[in-house]
């Protein structure tokens, strides 16, 4: 079954079959990343533009490596070096890039919906690499690949997602993906950072999404604990008193982690604030699959580029 779509804008409108296709394809690309020659000629002659209006190291590098390992030409544009600083509008930027005939545009923007807007104006495949507090589909897919590798399934898995859910596109994309595949997601964090009511969207999902009473309850008996980054750049509103207090009440330490299942795994989308949302002994401990997530990110992005930009 192929991916019948031009763009990957979010997980919300993906079917279970499409999610599984991307994950299965990514599985093959994982092998390529461990070969001596980590490159296949599949996207030779294709051009992928990484258009990043927000700071990013991991995601941008990951997309760049993914494109290069498929033999595509990848070009990186960041907002600080683009004509955006000269006052060009988003649509004008997109249409100018489109005029140079790329095959895929990967976009990160601080405004929710920016990739969707661009997708309407260009023929290239548009891939959302994070839009505001909305979605970050490839992150959820790489998280899913990591979970599948460790747990072998999604149905019935208990997943705790802890932290700043309000501002987190990672939390949102994961909630869509995991509940579609039958997992049970529990959110927890400071009340000021929990978008209560969000769970109503998942009433018809195969799995479920809910807000736990507190962090310990969410983590209790969990198969997967996903910590969200405290987004310093989005905390001007004074959502919690201090980082120290956040760490005490909501951070993941070994004691709290002991409430989860003995074989639980710990995920974090990065970049990590050590000692704030997660303690170093957890990050570097045996439960942590944080670096596997990064490795799987390249494979997932290769799969998405192959499926969207490979054909005519």
């Amino acid at each position: 079954m192929p991916l019948h779509r031009k763009d990957l804008l979010g997980i919300e409108d993906l079917s279970v079959e499409e999610i599984n296709l991307i994950l299965d394809t990514a599985e093959t690309f994982r092998d390529i990343n461990s070969r001596r020659i980590k490159k296949v000629p599949t996207l030779r002659g294709k051009t992928v533009i990484n258009l990043f209006f927000e700071a990013s190291t991991r995601t941008r590098t990951s997309f760049e490596i993914a494109g290069k390992r498929l033999s595509a030409d990848t070009i990186n544009i960041s907002a600080s070096t683009s004509s955006v600083v000269k006052g060009e509008t988003l649509i004008d930027t997109a249409q100018n890039l489109e005029a140079m005939a790329p095959d895929a545009i990967v976009i990160r923007h601080s405004s929710s919906g920016a990739p969707h807007q661009i997708a309407k104006y260009v023929n290239s495949a548009v891939i959302n690499a994070g839009d505001g507090a909305h979605e970050h589909p490839t992150q959820a897919l790489l998280d899913a690949l990591t979970i599948r590798h460790n747990k072998g399934k999604f149905a019935g898995l208990k997943v705790a997602i802890i932290g700043d859910v309000l501002h987190s596109r990672v939390a949102r994309s994961n909630a869509y993906l995991l509940s579609k595949l039958g997992a049970h997601v529990s959110f927890a964090g400071p009340n000021t950072l929990l978008p209560h009511g969000f769970e109503k969207q998942f009433a018809n999902a195969e799995g479920s999404v809910r807000f736990a009473a507190n962090v310990n309850e969410a983590i209790a008996d969990a198969d997967v604990v996903m910590m969200l980054r405290i987004q310093m750049e989005r905390q001007a509103g004074g959502f919690f008193p201090s980082l120290k207090e956040y760490s005490i009440h909501y951070g993941l330490n070994l004691k709290r982690l002991s409430l989860a299942k003995p074989d639980a795994i710990v995920l974090h989308p990065g970049p990590i604030n050590r000692g704030v949302e997660i303690e170093s002994d957890v990050v570097d401990g045996p439960y942590s699959v944080i670096l596997d997530q990064v490795a799987n990110g390249v494979a997932v992005r290769m799969a998405v580029l192959y499926l969207l930009a490979g054909g005519e």
């Binding site: 192929p2 296709l21 299965d24 093959t28 599949t42 002659g45 499926l307 490979g310 054909g311 005519e312």
Partner: peptide, 23 residues
């Protein structure tokens, strides 16, 4: 060996073929 990623007609096929593993 799965040759999908090395096909010479990939850019002309409408639907991307499923990639199997090479071992």
């Amino acid at each position: 060996l799965d040759i999908t990623l090395y096909r010479d007609d990939l850019s002309t096929v409408a639907e991307q073929p499923v990639v199997n593993s090479t071992q």
